[in-house]
Amino acid sequence: METSTTKAPLPPDRTAWWERRKACFPEARAILLPLLHDIQDHRGLVDGEAMQWAADFVGISPVEVYGVLTFYWMYDLEPRAKRRIAVCRNISCDLMGARRIVEALEDELGLECDRGGDGDWSLRTVECMGACTAAPMMDVNGRYFEELTPEKAREIVRAIREGREEVPEGPAEFAPVPANLARSWTEEPRKEEA
């Protein structure tokens, strides 16, 4: 399966890391969700070529990758904005004024919510992100900002713009795959020697 003709969407060291990571699971496709995250973090999207590559890499059909990818909302088939704001619209956040947060952000960014973005910023509403006791909240590139007020939300945008506030950009750091894996999931009988 490594003889794919498609160009790898990841740097060689990262591809090698995933190669080792595959061996942690009974089936290689188990790495698919995190692998697609990594591709997206490197390329800003997961396009057809990347899906093809990922399919070859884990030994399944591209159409299966396509089905998986579109099931989850966090993957993008189209290029995404550099800074992506997701405001929770679910019950706790709505009760605490999420609508006003969205209005403030629309005004601050000059964008209409849920209508894509301008390449630099995008603004959308999402379902519960799990910050209900600190509602309302927003997520920027994977970092949560909680207990928002409209003014606080505006200030966060300004701070990010001016580099006073950092949000994750690009891929995450990976530690090496541990050397002392038990790797006992294979079909060999266990505990017989013990």
Binding site: L33, P34, Y72, M74, E127, C128, A182, R183, S184
Partner: peptide, 16 residues
């Protein structure tokens, strides 16, 4: 102690 187990973390991608 003769007991071994692996712990692996898989990150989802947004689906309740």
């Amino acid at each position: 102690k003769g007991f071994g187990v692996d712990i692996h973390l898989t990150r989802g991608a947004g689906a309740y």
